[in-house]
Amino acid sequence: MIRRLLNLSESNSFFLFGPRGCGKTTLIHEIFKNKNAFWIDFLNLDFELRYKQRPQLLVDEYMASAKKPEWIIIDEVQKVPSILDAVQQLIEKYKVKFVLTGSSARKLKRSQANMLAGRAFNFSLFSFSYLELKEQFDLLQVLQFGSLPKLYNKELYNEQDKIRYLKSYVSTYLKEEIIVEQLVRQIEPFHRFLEVAAQSNREIINYSKLAKEAQITDKSVARYFEILSDTLMGHLIPAYHKSIRKQQIESPKFYFFDTGIVRAIRGELNYPLKPKSYEYGNYFESFIVNEIIKQNIYLEKDYKISYLKTKEGQEIDLIVESRLKTFLIEIKSCEVLDSSEVKALITLLPSFKKAAGLVLCTNNNPNMLTKEIKAIHWQDGIREIFN
């Protein structure tokens, strides 16, 4: 089994959210296989219906059990939000610990479910990081097909099977997450939106442009991006500004959580990705941003992540702010760079205090482009960001 970076609690109840197929159930099985645990899987329709009809059944079954479980593990908890009141009762009265997994917190929040404030930690899991894959990591393969766990379990023997899996993943997302969970009233407008959103992956969101292309309203575009974010299909990256109010006024960028999924939605899987091409550079940027987001979440750093674009059109791909230092980051998929390719970084870096300029690229030899700006291999650069 590929070991995950995420360090889950083994002493306190917690939620574990993540996109479908990212390995939540596999990880929980590995950690809790030798513990005194009772499992409930709401993908089993019988379980779902039983507990929907009478959520208090959970408490009754616990009280009736001869050997009281230390842990109760509920898979796909968003399917039965009402069970969380019974979960709270068991936590408070009987000190039972819970693992609650799901592919989205949206339905729980929208149904005003009991989110166990202060009683359960929150964790998120995504597709494999390069740090988890280790010697199995292949940059071109990850940019082409992504890094969902099923691609590495030896069931998918060739590229055609990988393509079939990724296509089915997208249709399953639409069916299971959007239609079954009733997140939208009509699926066709959302399907059109999904296609244009994938085309604008890593770009600043232009709500009116996307609305026109998808034949929906600006408000629908904003709501659909919220759905993508809440179902963990991607990340909204805000625009940088010292004023939080002004930061919220500027449009964010959106990065899908996995490059393979973006290519599946865009219908590009049958076309090999060519190194040094424009498309390769775009997917390389998307991959790097997702790696930084994953490590920020897994290591619980709470760094602020944003992008910057000035009125003059100068743009910084990523700004990562910790309490002690700020990194202004440009992402380049090439090996050879010179200072002429990072003019925005040179111009804007002096405006930041305690800041360093990093150009994350594929060159194995660090290169000082200026006194304050370093071109560095992307793996070394991410390591430096997270110390």
Rank of each mutant, 00 (worst) to 15 (best):
T370G: 01
N365R: 10
D380S: 15
N365G: 00
T347P: 00
K371D: 10
I331V: 11
D338A: 11
K353H: 07
H377F: 12
L360H: 06
Q379D: 11
N363F: 08
V342W: 00
S340R: 07
T326N: 05
S322D: 04
L324P: 00
L358V: 06
E330S: 01
N367H: 13
A344V: 01
E330N: 11
S340F: 00
L324W: 03
I346R: 05
L337C: 09
I382V: 15
F352I: 02
L337I: 09
S351K: 15
D338R: 10
G381H: 12
K354L: 09
K371A: 12
C361S: 14
I373P: 06
P350G: 04
S333A: 13
A356K: 14
H377C: 09
I331A: 06
S333N: 10
L324I: 04
P366T: 10
P350S: 08
D338L: 10
D338V: 13
C334M: 14
G381V: 13
T347C: 00
H377Y: 10
F352Y: 14
K353I: 03
P366D: 09
R383A: 15
S322F: 04
N367Y: 12
E372D: 14
T362D: 02
A375Y: 05
L369G: 03
N367W: 03
S322E: 05
I376N: 06
D338N: 15
C334E: 15
E330Q: 11
S340E: 07
K374F: 05
Q379Y: 08
L349F: 02
K325S: 10
I331P: 01
E341W: 04
L348W: 00
C361F: 03
K354F: 05
S340L: 02
C334H: 14
L337W: 04
W378R: 03
V336Y: 12
K371H: 12
L369W: 02
K374C: 13
W378P: 01
C361P: 05
I346C: 00
Q379G: 04
I331C: 06
L324G: 07
P350T: 07
S339H: 10
K343N: 04
N367D: 14
L328M: 07
A375N: 07
D380R: 13
P366N: 11
I376G: 09
L360T: 01
Q379E: 14
N363K: 11
N367S: 13
K371W: 03
S333D: 02
I373Q: 09
T370V: 01
P350Q: 01
W378G: 05
L328E: 00
P366F: 08
E335R: 12
S340Q: 10
